[in-house]
């Protein structure tokens, strides 16, 4: 396992799993258990290298499990379990001009899609958004596989000022012939992105992140409303038509366990403090 830290809260893990690297397609995800008592947490495959046999994950430390991994997953360690690739690969169709939109953490998983579209011969415009300049990552990686890259920051400290929706509007004003859009990021952002493209009738795919357990279609916990249908995101998705997704439902369901999550986080930070284990961050390791 190799590792790189993008910021205090965001880190990248590169996990050796040759067979998975061979099978992975853009849009798929893995489920990771970092230790035997751990949760099964879904993480999008941000990149894969078939030759080196590695899978790249970019993780934001938001709660107990992801912070714990931030501490425990260092170079040379291994995960208790990682299963995947899961979900349907994104359909990289015949689109000839594509807008790939990634917000915050969504920047990582949009990358393999952008690259996939490029390999299919499309003209690819990437719009990647961050809160501020210091959080920007992978800009060069995008530049190497996209025809245009628009960086947006909330405070204007890098690229254009504003959210990704601003970048999207800019791109659409420059190119009237965009025929597909893919947006990945927090639910609010994906909803915003879908609203930008709706008036233009541009097909917009979003990648949903409901709470999952098994990731194999067995529990129904990941169900989402798309149009008038109920879908299980782990087997029918995670990509769906952004114009059909019921985002209110998704966001309400994401809060299902907020009380327990907060409690777990609190207990965990207290036990860390007791053990005097100050999280080590910002130290890039290779």
């Amino acid at each position: 396992m190799a590792r790189e830290d993008f910021s205090d809260a965001t880190y990248l893990l590169e996990v050796h799993h040759p067979m998975m690297a061979k099978a992975a397609r853009p849009g798929q995800f893995v489920i990771v258990m970092s230790h035997e008592h751990g949760e099964r947490i879904p993480l999008t495959i941000a990149d894969y290298d078939r030759e080196d046999g590695t899978i790249t994950l970019v993780i934001q430390a938001v709660g107990k499990s992801t912070r714990e991994m931030q501490q425990s997953c260092t170079v040379g360690t291994s995960l208790y379990g990682m299963v995947g690739p899961m979900g349907m690969p994104s359909p990289l169709g015949q689109a000839s001009k594509v807008l790939c939109v990634g917000g915050g953490l969504g920047v990582a998983p949009i990358y393999p899609q952008a690259r996939g579209f490029k390999e299919n011969g499309a003209y690819v415009i990437a719009v990647i958004g961050f809160r501020t300049n210091s959080l920007v990552f992978w800009q060069e990686k995008f530049e190497s596989c996209c025809d245009e890259v628009i960086v947006c920051t909330d405070d204007g400290s890098a690229g254009i000022e504003g959210r990704v929706t601003e970048g999207m509007k800019l791109a659409i004003s420059r190119h009237a012939d965009i025929d597909e859009c893919v947006a990945i990021g927090p639910p609010v952002m994906m909803r915003g992105a879908a609203e930008v493209t709706r008036p233009y009738g541009i097909k917009t795919m979003v990648s949903l992140n409901p709470v999952m357990i098994d990731g194999t279609g067995m529990c129904g916990g990941c169900r989402v409303k798309v149009g008038d249908q109920v879908k299980f995101a782990c087997v029918d998705g995670p990509d769906f038509d952004g114009h059909q997704v019921d985002f209110d439902d998704l966001m309400a369901r994401l809060g299902r366990f907020s009380v327990e999550e907060k409690a777990a986080m609190k207990r965990w930070s207290e036990s860390c403090r007791m053990a005097q284990q100050v999280p080590e961050t910002g130290k890039p390791t290779e």
Binding site: H37, E39, I213, D214, C219, G221, E260, A264
Partner: peptide, 25 residues
């Protein structure tokens, strides 16, 4: 929720032993 979800959380993921195990109920 489905019974499968409830039972999986409880049995496989040991949610009955939360917070000793991380999966909540």
């Amino acid at each position: 929720l489905s019974a499968n979800e409830l039972l999986t959380r409880c049995n496989l993921m040991h949610a009955k032993e939360f917070p000793d195990y991380d999966t909540p109920m």
